[in-house]
């Protein structure tokens, strides 16, 4: 789907067009559900999070600004926040202060013009898989479980300094991969 189609559809959703909304759902539901499932690891919880994500899209469509970038990263950022909130609820972990507001999605999405090439994020998936297992653990817990470095150190029983070192090394490798692709 092109950016132009997305923009047209989302502007129709902002006007209350259910058909446009379902068209977006049909195109992106698998991407959103893939992310919520990866975070929550449970199909039922993931479907609930996917549903909540699209309900937020329905209610917040007017807040989407096409000039700030493509729809998909915005939608996935909302999905991550929704799923991490649900995860914290399930695991009784504290909620992060910025996790509820989809407006915050804009602040964390950089350089959106370069993100349309799907081969780049596919290569990122393989880059994560090929990290050293200890580094991969840290990335998984930080990004897909929403843990801070101290929480990761507690969960894995590693010294905080070790967590910091491994996270930095992992991010540096991922950055190299991202810049090469």
């Amino acid at each position: 789907m092109t950016g132009i189609d997305d923009n047209k559809l989302i502007s129709q959703v902002a006007l209350g067009d259910e058909n446009a909304f379902m068209a977006i759902y049909d195109h992106y539901a698998s991407r959103v559900h893939g992310l919520t499932l990866r975070i929550l690891g449970n199909d039922m919880l993931a479907e609930e999070a996917t549903q909540d994500t699209f309900l937020k899209l329905w209610s917040r469509a007017r807040q989407y600004l096409a000039e700030q970038g493509p729809l998909l990263p915005w939608l996935l950022t909302i999905a991550r926040h929704v799923a991490l909130d649900r995860l914290r609820l399930e695991t009784r972990r504290p909620t992060l202060s910025d996790s509820n507001d989809p407006d915050n999605a804009w602040q964390t999405i950089p350089d959106l013009e370069t993100l349309s090439d799907e081969s780049r994020w596919r290569s990122m998936y393989f880059a994560v898989q090929t990290l050293h297992p200890d580094q991969r653990k840290v990335i998984e817990l930080a990004y897909y479980q929403g843990m801070s470095q101290s929480e990761i150190a507690d969960v894995l029983g590693w010294p905080l300094g070790t967590v910091k070192t491994r996270l930095r090394a992992a991010m540096e490798k991922l950055r190299e991969t991202w810049n090469e692709t």
């Binding site: 909304f21 499932l37 993931a46």
Partner: peptide, 30 residues
């Protein structure tokens, strides 16, 4: 640069089609 990496991570989760029931539920809840 590092935030670009996190967006790469965001999009790197393998797609998974949700159940058809979710689509019906969602349409009913709008």
């Amino acid at each position: 640069e590092y935030r670009s990496v996190t967006i790469g991570l965001l999009q790197s989760a393998p797609p998974k089609v949700p159940s058809p029931e979710l689509r019906r539920r969602l349409a009913a809840r709008l």
